[in-house]
């Protein structure tokens, strides 16, 4: 589903060759070996809960009692749930604004921190530090120290005579502060970019240096194209991750997605339904709607990737 591009590409190669080469036949056998742990994991651990949640999405399930089958009622209910629609708006806004910003920050800093600078290890570690905090409960406090009424931002604004407000607790700005929080933790994609930059064979740069190419040209014609698989990876997974964003909103808003539902992420609402309202059936249905949305976007990502992602194979 999500690998339309792959699918299309594979069809093409298949169409080109009617019979399989001996090496490709060997591939099937080897694949079983290489994928054995994954297949076992899929069968034993991943698939069961996945299918169970699909089944539960057609039931009324309070967690405390046995589920009872109610058909598509949960799905119908979603059509008429204003808080769910609001949470979709919040989540989409979050994904489409913060993911590109985060990736740009990550790539930019990865370029700067790639090499040719003293103290790189320290800089990298410092910039990664915020990402180490993860979903620590401390985040809520720390974020208030920055974006609260008496936080750092307002102190700085105060120097310029501007009277700021509590950004983190204002319905119009709270989501923005969470986006900044997401951008702030750009460490993971930055590291992946750094690793990707490492993988670009030096000789390409040398060759182009001999050709007299400048920095910008090297970046555009060597770094970027060779980094596209990694950019693509980061894009796909950050999108998947951002749709499931939960912990930070949970911690910062104290679990409620407030103020006034302005940070009610989809998964936060799902969690509230499942664990606070004892409506795991509805939560499961929500999860499957989310899966369809993410899968569709991922498929789109894969589809468009063939226009801009370059592989060596």
């Amino acid at each position: 589903m999500s690998a339309l591009g792959e699918l299309a590409a594979l069809r093409k190669t298949k169409g080109a060759k009617d019979t399989l080469s001996p090496s490709e036949r060997g591939d099937n056998k080897a694949a079983i070996f290489f994928l054995a742990p994954w297949f076992i994991g899929l069968g034993l651990i991943t698939a069961g809960p996945l299918l169970a949640s699909l089944y539960l999405s057609f039931t009324d399930y309070s967690l405390l009692e046995a589920p009872s089958w109610i058909g598509i009622e949960n799905y119908v209910r979603m059509l008429d749930d204003p808080r769910l629609h609001n949470s979709l708006v919040v989540t989409f806004t979050y994904v489409f604004v913060s993911v590109p910003l985060q990736l740009a920050a990550a790539l930019g800093l990865a370029m700067v921190l790639d090499r040719g600078l003293r103290g790189l290890a320290i800089y990298r570690s410092v910039y990664y530090l915020p990402s180490l905090l993860g979903g620590s409960v401390a985040i809520a406090i720390l974020w208030r120290q920055i974006f609260g009424t008496n936080g750092l931002v307002n102190q700085v604004l105060g120097i310029f005579g501007i009277q700021g407000q509590g950004w983190v607790s204002h319905p119009d700005y709270a989501l923005g502060t969470l986006m900044i929080l997401n951008v702030w933790t750009f460490g993971a994609p930055m590291i992946i970019f750094l690793a990707g930059l490492r993988q670009i064979p030096e000789m390409y740069y040398e060759a182009s240096s001999i050709d007299g190419a400048g920095r910008v040209r090297k970046f555009v014609s060597i770094t970027l194209p060779l980094l596209t698989p990694i950019i693509f990876f980061n894009l796909v997974l950050q999108v998947i991750g951002a749709f499931q964003a939960f912990t930070q909103a949970f911690v910062v808003s104290g679990g409620g997605g407030g103020p006034a539902d302005s940070t009610l992420f989809y998964t936060l609402y799902l969690y509230q339904n499942g664990f606070r309202s004892f409506d795991m059936g509805y939560a499961s249905a929500m999860a499957w709607l989310l899966l369809v949305i993410i899968a569709a976007l991922t498929a789109a990502n894969f589809f468009f990737s063939k226009y801009w992602v370059f592989y060596n194979d």
Binding site: R144, G148, T149, Q165, W167, V168, S169, G258, P259
Partner: peptide, 13 residues
């Protein structure tokens, strides 16, 4: 009482 946003902030704390 404080402004709305400060109130929310304080309440969360």
């Amino acid at each position: 009482t404080p402004s709305a946003s400060e109130t929310i902030e304080v309440d969360a704390g």
